[in-house]
Design a protein around this nucleic acid. Structure first.
Lengths: 141, 141
DNA sequence: ACGCAATTGCAAATCATTCGCAAATCAGTT
DNA sequence: AACTGATTTGCGAATGATTTGCAATTGCGT
């Protein structure tokens, strides 16, 4: 398991290796992402970054998110329509269970489901590029 | 398997039974939905409906889609972010495989995956309200 | 330190969707 | 078939998330 600090360093190393310019704003945004334990949206990231460095703008947050997504460093989700949410892509693949009452997001992973998905795609003549599995549930009374 | 005409009649019957007013525009939009073999978005539905009846506006398409979704008559998807797509809800439940090259949507159903999902949710202490499983794949060379 | 292309903040533009409101229309009642 | 009142409509303006144009700023190789 990576610590936020390790994740941050790795983000920077990877970006530099890809020839991406390390501006103050990008470093701050990347730091906020590295430290996030949840799945923040652009606005939440902006506010967290702004506290660390008032020179960060919402535009740059959006531009940096796109940049990081294109580099495969983060992943975009749209659990609720209209607002994209983000998370680091360095961790192992997992799917999400969203509590419909609280909005809480729980991560899980099932080897068996992954395998079944690949089988189904193969039967239909496809190779899976990516997939999205979201369970929306309610806590048992 | 229901024919488009049967689906159309059933839409109208159900709506009338729910005390929904059957306006000209709603009937046209419902007819277009009943006949759709794909997963059209609001704009596509608007164009198809407009051909049948020039008095249909995009606003009413959106309002009717919301109405039908609230009544459980249709289902909303957001395969590509930003544009919702719709399909009749009368057919059996199924999931989707989206061809990343062509955008084509293939429907499939797996009893085993459904079952696994329920098991996973149960382990986490949840009952599934709904779920979203989308495979994004590429045709095998 | 120099220079210039890449990046920034800001405000204005987009895109899908929703909303306000006056005019039109449905559906039950005479 | 006309009457009525609440619902629904089309229009254009409003919204909310995200993107973009542009002049000013900044990272970073020389």
């Amino acid at each position: 398991m990576m610590t936020p600090a390790q994740r941050y360093e790795r983000f920077l190393t990877d970006l530099k290796a890809s020839g991406v310019r390390l501006t103050e704003q990008r470093k701050v945004i990347v730091k906020v992402l590295a430290e996030a334990r949840d799945h923040p949206n652009a606005d939440e990231l902006y506010h967290r970054a702004y506290v660390l460095d008032g020179s960060v703008s919402l535009s740059t947050v959006y531009r940096t998110l796109r940049l990081l997504e294109d580099h495969g460093a983060i992943q975009r989700h749209d659990f609720d329509a209209g607002r994209a949410r983000f998370e680091n892509a360095d961790t192992d693949h997992h799917d999400h269970l969203i509590d419909v009452d609280t909005g809480q997001v729980i991560e899980f992973r099932s080897e068996r489901i992954e395998k079944l998905q690949a089988e189904i795609a193969a039967e239909l003549g496809f190779d899976i590029v990516r997939h999205k599995l979201e369970l929306y549930g309610r806590k048992r009374g």
